[in-house]
Every structure is written in structure tokens, then in C-alpha cells.
Computed example of a mutant assay.
Amino acid sequence: MKEQRYSSLENALRVLELFSIEEPDLSVREVAERLSVADSTSHRLLKTLLNEGFVTKDDRSNRYRLGISIRALESVIKKDLSLYHTSQHVLSTYVTRVCETISICVLHRNQTFYLHTVEPDPEQMFYTGLTYVGKRQHVLFTSAGKVLLSDKTKAEVKTVLSEVENELSLEHMMAELKQINEKGYNISYNNFSSGITSISAPVKNKDHQVIAAVEILGPGQRITTEILGKYVKLIKEIAHEIETRVDIKNVAIK
């Protein structure tokens, strides 16, 4: 297989995408290993990002974190992202009716990217922090992820399957996604950790393309068979509410 080559700009952007809630700081060596580049190249990329304020450096540990310039860009993005603002209001309204975590997710580089999450009263929660803004999960590992894939082409799904070890054939996955698309929702068990159940539904634009997914997430002992029907109805209602409140005809997050 031919090795893919990246420009300096592409590598710098790849560096920024390495940082996450789970790994907020990285060393020169760790960045080099993740990008499959020399330590000297990693150091040069980090120094450039440091000079521009996109990362900061802890001189005691010699580790790097995202810098203030990223926060400035985040503010611009959120200001113009109507999907983000609309979902904030809708999810906050419904969380008291569901009494479980509700999130809205988008597809980003074949991952389920959590755009916004609302949790109910902490005293009602068995689990907290399962999802949060910026969390990323592979699309095959969440109910929301499969909803986000449910209208993709066979070629697009094939690419996703090639990126993760799984025992599912392409034909089996396409049949499952077709069923999800026809039902208009998806239920998944043991998400994130054992005993967690999630129910998701698509948010579509005016061209009927799936551009986001809403997800109810909670412990299986509370989301029983008897209550699943109620939550399926509610998750579809939440998705429809977001669709009608925001102009998302041209929304496309990749």
C-alpha cells in the first residue's frame, strides 16, 4: 500500500485533532508516534502551533495543550452553528421528561462527535459523564453512530468498516442500516460500558439527508422493555422539534 504523504499544513491540523478530553496534553514523542513522523518534525509542528497560540506548553512537564486561539475559533463556530444553539434549548426542555442523558451528535471523520449533551438532576443519575461536548466514538459503537450512517452509500459504509476490526460483513451492515432508516430510530445495548442502553433518531435537512442524530442514554435497569416504546416516541419527537426550529437545509458536517 502506498504511504500517504501530508503537507506541513495537513500535519499541523492533524496535530490539533490529536487532543481530546481523554488526552488533553501530549508530548513531542507522543505526537510523533501518532502521526508516524520523526521527533524533530513533531517538535517543529508543535513549535509553529505554539508561536501562533494554538497550543500552550508546560515548561515543567514539556507537554502541550490546546491554546487560546482554539477557544477563539470555537466561539466563532458556535455563534454561527444554528444546530448547536437550537439543540441546546430543545434538549434542555426534554431532559426533565426523559430523566436520562440526551445528546445531539454529528458525523466527523467516521466518528460520532457529541455536539451537545444535557444531563438531568445528578441525584437521579446512576452514571454521569458518559457523554460530553467534544466526545468522539467510532460510529459502529453507538446507536447514534449507526443512525448517522443510515443513509450513506455502500462505498461510504465500506470505508467505515475497513477502519475498525469487526465481524460484520458489508451486506449485513447495509441490511441493518436499511432497517434503521426505515424505522426512523435505533436501539443499542451496552454502549460505552456494560449495562448502558441508548435510543437514537435522525435529524434530517429539507433534502431528507441525515445531518445529525439525537440520543437518549441511560442504565438498562431503568430503560426497561416497558419504557423503550415511550423513549422511541420521545426521541423521534425531539428530532422533529430540532428539524422544525432551525434552517438546516445547507448544514453539512463532515
Score class of each variant (00 low, 15 high):
residue 222 R to P: 00
residue 148 L to M: 07
residue 199 I to G: 00
residue 215 E to D: 04
residue 201 A to M: 02
residue 228 L to K: 14
residue 226 E to Y: 11
residue 183 K to I: 02
residue 183 K to Y: 15
residue 213 A to T: 06
residue 247 D to W: 13
residue 229 G to N: 14
residue 232 V to R: 01
residue 157 V to T: 04
residue 163 E to V: 01
residue 252 A to R: 10
residue 193 S to F: 11
residue 196 I to M: 06
residue 182 E to Q: 15
residue 171 E to C: 08
residue 249 K to V: 09
residue 201 A to F: 00
residue 209 Q to M: 12
residue 144 A to Q: 03
residue 220 G to D: 08
residue 144 A to S: 11
residue 161 L to A: 05
residue 214 V to F: 03
residue 172 H to S: 13
residue 251 V to P: 04
residue 148 L to S: 06
residue 224 T to S: 10
residue 216 I to G: 00
residue 178 K to M: 07
residue 229 G to E: 09
residue 247 D to F: 10
residue 136 R to V: 13
residue 211 I to R: 08
residue 144 A to G: 07
residue 225 T to H: 13
residue 222 R to E: 07
residue 158 K to T: 11
residue 238 I to K: 04
residue 151 D to M: 00
residue 157 V to H: 00
residue 181 N to K: 13
residue 241 E to M: 01
residue 157 V to Y: 00
residue 180 I to M: 08
residue 215 E to Q: 09
residue 233 K to M: 02
residue 173 M to E: 05
residue 187 I to W: 04
residue 202 P to M: 12
residue 252 A to Y: 13
residue 176 E to I: 11
residue 186 N to A: 13
residue 231 Y to N: 08
residue 216 I to S: 03
residue 208 H to R: 15
residue 169 S to V: 09
residue 166 N to M: 02
residue 183 K to M: 15
residue 191 N to K: 12
residue 220 G to T: 06
residue 168 L to R: 09
residue 154 K to N: 09
residue 226 E to S: 13
residue 200 S to W: 06
residue 231 Y to K: 01
residue 218 G to M: 06
residue 211 I to Q: 09
residue 160 V to Y: 04
residue 136 R to Q: 13
residue 204 K to Q: 12
residue 194 S to G: 10
residue 189 Y to Q: 15
residue 218 G to Q: 03
residue 138 H to L: 10
residue 216 I to M: 01
residue 198 S to I: 02
residue 162 S to D: 07
residue 174 M to I: 09
residue 235 I to R: 00
residue 204 K to Y: 02
residue 244 T to D: 15
residue 251 V to N: 09
residue 182 E to G: 07
residue 221 Q to F: 06
residue 137 Q to H: 03
residue 149 L to P: 05
residue 239 A to T: 09
residue 213 A to I: 02
residue 208 H to I: 14
residue 223 I to F: 04
residue 218 G to A: 06
residue 234 L to A: 01
residue 174 M to C: 04
residue 168 L to W: 11
residue 192 F to K: 05
residue 167 E to S: 15
residue 158 K to W: 05
residue 172 H to C: 13
residue 252 A to W: 11
residue 136 R to M: 15
residue 209 Q to A: 06
residue 212 A to N: 01
residue 201 A to H: 05
residue 204 K to S: 11
residue 231 Y to R: 02
residue 175 A to I: 09
residue 228 L to S: 08
residue 146 K to L: 07
residue 182 E to C: 10
residue 158 K to N: 13
residue 150 S to W: 04
residue 198 S to D: 07
residue 232 V to C: 04
residue 181 N to Y: 14
residue 204 K to C: 12
residue 216 I to R: 01
residue 238 I to M: 01
residue 160 V to G: 07
residue 137 Q to E: 12
residue 238 I to A: 03
residue 149 L to W: 01
residue 210 V to R: 08
residue 194 S to M: 06
residue 161 L to P: 03
residue 247 D to Q: 14
residue 252 A to N: 15
residue 165 E to Y: 07
residue 158 K to E: 08
residue 227 I to A: 10
residue 200 S to L: 10
residue 226 E to K: 12
residue 236 K to G: 05
residue 151 D to Q: 03
